[in-house]
């Protein structure tokens, strides 16, 4: 290698040497970038449905039988109804729910008024306080789940495309760091299952790549629709770690990192998961 470079150097002039070096540096940089991508994003990307049984996939694909669609239908009622505080209904500003097409693909994102990164549920909660004169929605309340399901459903089939630059970058990096940090009595990081062992089984359960595209999802174990934060908290419980609070920076950062990791995959909310 060194010998070949030496012969090339003797043959080429000063300008040629410069170009050769520049190309070498660029190749190194792009190789490093490609390695960085490959190290953190599973290849090929597979949505959560790819790890579910045929029954569960069929249930999700059937828009009538999918129990998550009950929450979408209820969300449409909340969307049109005037809130208790006497403020405007969601429809009063946004119009039809279909106007929210594509919105869910961009969350979590930085909200300038909240001055922090928030997920879609957090943004709906903030909208209720800001514009409807409401008191916000408690986490996992039926109204919040229903509205989040309705809004997410409008983006079904569209690729996830979150912005992790600018003010959202700090949360993204925190989420990435947490994703790779060993936690809990089992001393596992997210990456140990969802990067290193996806496609294999944990007891009887296939390990997914951990993409958030189906959420909020109807989880058969819960017999209810639940948010991604509830699912993440269940993972914290699973490795016997302390569960972060709903809406905490830890969970939102993790959600942002997961969304970045899943970019390009299609939104499939409301999903059905075992």
């Amino acid at each position: 290698m060194a010998g070949r470079r030496g012969r090339a150097r003797r043959r080429a002039g000063a300008a040629g040497r410069f170009v050769t070096r520049l190309l070498g540096v660029l190749a190194l940089i792009s190789a490093a970038a490609a390695f960085g991508q490959a190290a953190v994003r599973p290849d090929p990307l597979q949505p959560g449905t790819a790890f579910q049984s045929a029954d569960v996939r069929a249930l999700q694909a059937d828009d009538f039988a999918n129990p998550g669609m009950l929450w979408v239908a209820r969300g449409a009622e909340f969307w049109a109804a005037r809130p208790a505080g006497g403020g405007k209904a969601c429809a009063g500003c946004h119009g039809e729910p279909a106007a929210m097409r594509g919105v869910a693909t961009r969350y979590p994102r930085h909200d300038p008024e909240l001055r922090r990164v928030t997920d879609l549920s957090g943004r709906i909660d903030a909208c209720n306080r800001r514009h409807q004169g409401g008191e916000g929605y408690p986490p996992e309340s039926q109204a919040l789940l229903s509205l989040a399901a309705l809004v997410s459903h409008q983006s079904r089939g569209m690729p996830v495309a979150v912005d992790v630059s600018g003010p959202a970058n700090a949360a993204f990096r925190e989420g990435q760091a947490l994703y790779r940090t060993r936690i809990g009595q089992l001393n596992l990081a997210c990456t140990h299952c969802h990067d290193a062992n996806w496609g294999r089984t944990l007891l009887a359960e296939p390990i997914s790549q951990g993409h958030p595209t189906g959420w909020p999802a109807y989880r058969l174990e819960w017999q209810s629709l639940g948010s991604l934060q509830r699912r993440l908290r269940a993972c914290f419980f699973g490795v016997r770690a302390e569960q972060p609070a709903y809406g905490s920076e830890d969970l939102v950062g993790l959600e942002l990192y997961l969304a970045w990791r899943a970019q390009g995959l299609a939104v499939e909310a409301p999903g059905v998961r075992r």
Binding site: F64, A65, P67, M69, L70, W71, Q223, S224
Partner: peptide, 9 residues
């Protein structure tokens, strides 16, 4: 005919 009811049971 298909029917789905939202109820915690």
């Amino acid at each position: 005919i298909r029917l789905l009811i939202q109820h915690p049971m």
